[in-house]
Each structure stands twice: as structure tokens, then as C-alpha cells.
């Protein structure tokens, strides 16, 4: 019984670590732009499709290890490149203007990228190269799956790097100032356009890494991945509080644990229902998110600091 609970928690945390990265990417974009990027999932799907395309074209010619690493690089680079396209087309021209228009525009581009990806690989299910020929390890009664360990390890590493980048560099300071208060950023001479673009690309990269972790665990990519990864990123971000990076990490982990326990208790059909239900409840009862400082209070916080 206890073992089952610990095992479920472990599975949930591993899934949640990937959700956390998806949420962090999403929330960083929101933080600098105050806009929702609806094509976020589609750009991640595009990266995943490039990785699968590589495997289907060059799979036989490369050693397994090289293929896995190359697919990871291609996926993350693809997501970042698609992010560049989205930022230039949907967000840069509409900066400081209608937020709804930018959002609808990014939705239109979602459809565009999704259709383009399925044109690259028309099959519904496409195998994705994964490094796990290793069997699961047994630790007493617990099962440790290699993809879970990889996810946790990579997620922690990315979180540390991102923390360093945001807390200990000029660029990070600019990003944080811009997220806290665009007016303050302008007053101290931060180039908002350039900072937004770079932060957007960094966020796409983080999202791309999260997507890669999910794809190697699933060992496949389908056209549903765009919608799916956007939903997970969105829920992780909102549970933790819109615009807060530590919040998105906590939200992602919580989402993973909630889903895993829901599935263990009530079966797989309830899994998604629980995720959306939790989001709805949090929004109605505590719109600023469960943890930490939310965008709700960001302006107040920034004013106090000034």
C-alpha cells in the first residue's frame, strides 16, 4: 500500500518535471509580453516532428546514441526556430497594441505550423528515437524507470541553468524588469523589443527540452502533441500563478502528482478531467495561483520596489 503510494508519487513527479518545463517556457513568454502564445504547443510539436523526420530518413545510417542526441538537438532547435517565426509574425508587429489580435494571430499560426508538420510526416503515429534499451531498475518494491530518472535529472539541470541566467546576468535582469514593469524597463533604457525576442527564444528552448523529455518517454509523436503540450503547459502555468517561474515549476509537479493519483484511484479516463477540473477550481477560488507571487500582484510588487 505504502509502496503503491510512493510509486504513484514518483511517477507523478517524473511526469510533472516535464510539465514544469512546459509551464516555465509558457510563463516566461507571458511574463515578458503579457500575451498568451497559443501556438506554443504547435512550435513544440514542430520540433518533435523534425526529430521524428530525422529518425525516419537517417535512422539506419546513424548509431543509436548519435541518433538520440541529434534528434534532441533538432527538436529543441526546431522549437526555437518556430518560436522565432511566431514572435516575428504575431507578437513583434502588435507590441503595445491589441492583445486579443496577437492571441488570435498566434492561433492562426498554430494551425499553420500544425498543418505544415503533418505535411512533413503524414502518418498519425511517428516513432521518436529514445535512448532506453535498458530495463527498469528495481529498488526494493519500487520500480525506477530510466526515462523518469532522465526527466528528473534534465529538469533539475535546466531549472538551475535558467535560475542562473535570470538571477545572475544582465539579460536576466532586463527580462525580470520587463516582466515586473514595462514602464520601469523603458525608464532605465532596456531595449524591450530585443529583450522580448531573446526571452521568447529562451522560453521556446526550455519548452523544447520539456517536449523532448515527453517524447522520449512516449517514444512517439502524433498530431495531438501540439494541443496536448499546450494544455499541460497552460495548466502548470496557471496552477502556479500566471507569470511566475517558480510557480510554474510547482504547478507542473502538482499537476503530475494529481494526474498520477487520479489515474491510480479512478482509472485513466479521469486523468484529464482531474487536470482541467483542478485548473477551473483554482481559477474560481484563487485566480492568482496556488503558489508564490502571481502576475495578479506583480504590478503592486514592482511599484513597491520602485
Amino acid at each position: 500500500m505504502i509502496v503503491d503510494i510512493v510509486q504513484t508519487l514518483l511517477n507523478g513527479l517524473a511526469a510533472g518535471a516535464a510539465y514544469a518545463l512546459l509551464g516555465v517556457g509558457f510563463t516566461m513568454m507571458f511574463g515578458v509580453m503579457r500575451r498568451l502564445n497559443l501556438s506554443y504547443g504547435a512550435t513544440l510539436m514542430f520540433g518533435g516532428y523534425l526529430g521524428a523526420l530525422l529518425a525516419s530518413r537517417a535512422g539506419g545510417a546513424l548509431p543509436d546514441a548519435a541518433l538520440v542526441l541529434l534528434a534532441a538537438a533538432v527538436t529543441v532547435a526546431g522549437a526555437t526556430l518556430a518560436g522565432l517565426y511566431v514572435e516575428r509574425l504575431c507578437f513583434a508587429p502588435l507590441r503595445g497594441r491589441s492583445g486579443v489580435a496577437a492571441m488570435v494571430s498566434s492561433f492562426a499560426v498554430w494551425m499553420q505550423i500544425e498543418e505544415f508538420s503533418t505535411w512533413l510526416l503524414p502518418l498519425h503515429t511517428n516513432p521518436y528515437p529514445a535512448p532506453f534499451n535498458v530495463a527498469s531498475w528495481q529498488l526494493g518494491a519500487l520500480t525506477l524507470r530510466p526515462e523518469h530518472l532522465l526527466t528528473l535529472l534534465v529538469a533539475v539541470l535546466v531549472a538551475i541553468l535558467l535560475h542562473r541566467l535570470l538571477r545572475a546576468s544582465r539579460f536576466g535582469l532586463a527580462v525580470r524588469t520587463l516582466s515586473d514593469s514595462p514602464a520601469a524597463a523603458q525608464a532605465v533604457g532596456i531595449d524591450a523589443g530585443r529583450t522580448t525576442l531573446l526571452a521568447f527564444l529562451a522560453a521556446s528552448t526550455v519548452g523544447g527540452i520539456g517536449a523532448w523529455l515527453v517524447l522520449v518517454a512516449d517514444q512517439q509523436v502524433t498530431p495531438m502533441f501540439g494541443m496536448w503540450s499546450m494544455a499541460k503547459g497552460l495548466i502548470a502555468m496557471m496552477l502556479g500563478g500566471l507569470g511566475s517561474i517558480p510557480g510554474a515549476v510547482a504547478g507542473g509537479l502538482l499537476l503530475g502528482v494529481l494526474e498520477a493519483s487520479g489515474q491510480a484511484l479512478f482509472g485513466p479516463q479521469i486523468r484529464e478531467l482531474i487536470a482541467w477540473g483542478a485548473l477551473f477550481l483554482v481559477l474560481v477560488l484563487r485566480p492568482g495561483g496556488l503558489f508564490g507571487r502571481a502576475a495578479f500582484d506583480l504590478d503592486i510588487a514592482a511599484h513597491q520596489r520602485l
Binding site: S98, A102, M111, Q112
Partner: peptide, 12 residues
């Protein structure tokens, strides 16, 4: 969708 998406983005 490629055409529609591009048109909408430019229109907006």
C-alpha cells in the same frame, strides 16, 4: 490551414 493562418496573421 497554412494559407488561412498566414492570411489571418497578416490581416490582424
Amino acid at each position: 490551414m497554412v494559407v488561412f493562418g498566414g492570411l489571418v496573421a497578416l490581416l490582424l
